[in-house]
Design a protein around this nucleic acid. Structure first.
Lengths: 101, 101
DNA sequence: CGCCTGTCTTGACGTCTGTCGAATCAAACG
DNA sequence: CGTTTGATTCGACAGACGTCAAGACAGGCG
């Protein structure tokens, strides 16, 4: 069973996604979005769960968006976030492959 | 099937490990260590694979060490690094759980 | 012992990050 | 319309990060 290592280019592509997960607030945000019953959740339900200000939450959500981990759309007054599974699956697979049995 | 979200404390604990993976050089270092044929690899084999200086590689290796992702020991002149599977498995599992089917 | 080679630490530097308050934009509602 | 409420953007700031050159440390070998 061959385990070949990442190319430099693959590392450059994947690292920003891990980086986006590398902040406690973002990790918890992602987790809340992922476990939302309807598959999506309103920012108004996310913000009060944290000690930080609303602009800060907005900044973290944008970071997750730009990393390709979540997607958002506005419906009327509220903005809803949902998981975008593609990149997250890549990360999970990579970690599983790199981890020795 | 219940998917409950991370506690703040779990997020604080896990985020640093993701953060450590959030740099292209570190990600590739980890990958090279993980795919080393003998399960471990000498720093002298890692350093020449990158464009950055040896101190920079040393700094990144320490970061991976402090994140609990790798372990090192010196044998004579050379220092060998190997994967420490525990935390990596946690990360992989977390990502798999958070990713919708 | 004294030197050489491999690795790590230190000091310094520019840049990026996380945070906030204030200002702005978007949409509903009088 | 003007106002209110939710969400984002802007401007600013302290702190952390990634990088390197220079120095320190550790082990082998004359």
């Amino acid at each position: 069973m061959v385990r070949h290592s990442l190319t430099a280019q693959a590392a450059v592509t994947l690292a920003p996604a891990f980086k986006a997960l590398g902040d406690p607030v973002r990790l918890q945000l992602l987790s809340m979005i992922a476990s939302a019953p309807e598959g999506e959740i309103c920012v108004c339900d996310l913000t009060p769960a944290f000690e930080v200000s609303a602009p800060t939450i907005s900044y973290h959500l944008r970071t997750l968006r730009e990393a390709g981990l979540v997607d958002a759309d506005r419906r009327g007054t509220w903005v809803y976030y949902r998981i975008r599974p593609g990149v997250m699956r890549q990360l999970a697979t990579l970690l599983a492959v790199e981890t020795p049995a």
